[in-house]
């Protein structure tokens, strides 16, 4: 049989040398290596102790910049600060909160790689609920409502008119209530004791054929076929969301599921504690991220959407010509 069969370590016998000399010498060497001056003596070290290694890679260097404390730092692969006087290669202990590990070892905290606190860019969230379906533990909760896309509210002739969505089968639609403008004109929002009047009736679109659309009204008045031109496209938009950190296991499946650059895991591992379970519910204010990160994400998402919109119009134009 060609397997590697061992019979123990070559020096593994219970003799006098192994009784006290060998183990005590090992521990003494370890202790002396941390002492000034003596720690540099060669007989205490094998040739692998305290050898500086390049640990920071180019991508990390680009990310953190050359002013970062880790630039120019010599690291050893482990955390033994075996060379004193005056090499300090890698700390044994990170003096949190005065020092932070992401400052000392930035390669461990590449954004997007580390499962830190969840960060959400609410502005670009479209309430698609993919994150909720992805979560194994039912930690994400979201309340949504159907709203008309704000771009739809423009008049013909406005520069941004016509850039809203389109009616889709399976989507939502809204029809303005006829009496709305009359009521709204005379409604005193400041002094009235009633809610503001609703502008639209909402419906789910079942089928579109040419000019006609079959819709099911959300107020329960049944299915009706109406003129498409009287309908505006609507969508589900997010009202509020919460993450229950008490259940979250930081698996990252929700962040992977989001197609809209709105949901990601930050590098932060602080600030998620509380004294009661309710304090662990992270709502919008507790999932905010640093402004630079926020802006970066919003830009990414808007670029994506603009790209998609441009392609759509190009295809439409091509179809119109053909």
């Amino acid at each position: 049989m060609s397997y590697k069969a061992n019979t123990g370590h070559p020096h593994a016998t219970p003799n006098f040398r192994n009784l006290i000399i060998r183990p005590m010498w090992m521990t003494l060497k370890t202790a002396l290596r941390t002492v000034p001056f003596i720690g540099k003596l060669r007989f205490l070290k094998n040739d692998y102790h305290g050898k500086p290694t390049v640990m920071v890679d180019q991508a990390t260097m680009d990310r953190v910049g050359s002013e970062h404390p880790s630039a120019g730092q010599k690291f050893a692969p482990d955390r033994e600060t075996s060379q004193v006087m005056p090499f300090v290669e890698r700390p044994v202990t990170v003096m949190y909160p005065y020092e932070r590990l992401e400052d000392l070892e930035p390669w461990l905290f590449v954004p997007g790689n580390y499962f830190g606190r969840i960060g959400i860019v609410w502005e670009t969230c479209t309430a698609c609920k993919l994150c909720i379906h992805a979560c194994p533990n039912d930690c994400l909760h979201m309340t949504t409502e159907v709203r008309v896309n704000v771009l739809e509210l423009s008049e013909d002739g406005d520069e941004w008119h016509g850039y809203g969505g389109e009616l889709e089968e399976g989507g939502y639609a809204a029809r303005e209530k006829e009496e709305y403008h009359d009521i709204a004109a005379s409604f005193d929002l400041v002094n009235a004791h009633a809610d503001a009047p609703q502008q639209y009736d909402f419906a789910e679109v079942i089928e579109i054929s040419g000019d006609k659309a079959t819709v099911r009204w959300s107020d329960g008045s049944g299915i009706e076929t109406v003129d498409s031109t009287s309908l505006k496209p609507a969508e589900q938009d997010i009202v509020s969301g919460q993450i229950d950190l008490g259940r979250c296991m930081f698996c990252g499946l929700c962040a992977e599921a989001c197609p809209f650059e709105s949901f990601f895991m930050t590098n932060e591992y602080d600030g998620m504690s509380g004294f009661s379970r309710e304090e662990l519910w992270m709502d919008a204010s507790r999932t905010r991220v640093l402004p630079a990160v926020h802006q970066e994400r919003v830009d990414m998402e808007l670029a994506k959407r603009a790209e998609k919109e441009k392609e759509k119009r190009a295809r439409k134009a091509a179809r119109a010509e053909a």
Binding site: T34, P36, E80
Partner: peptide, 21 residues
């Protein structure tokens, strides 16, 4: 202190370091 050094739990001696740094 000594068992900390033997166990490699304490890092380099930085207490007196400030004298020369």
């Amino acid at each position: 202190k000594f068992i900390g050094r033997l166990m490699d739990r304490l890092g380099a001696t930085t207490t007196m370091r400030s004298l020369w740094v």
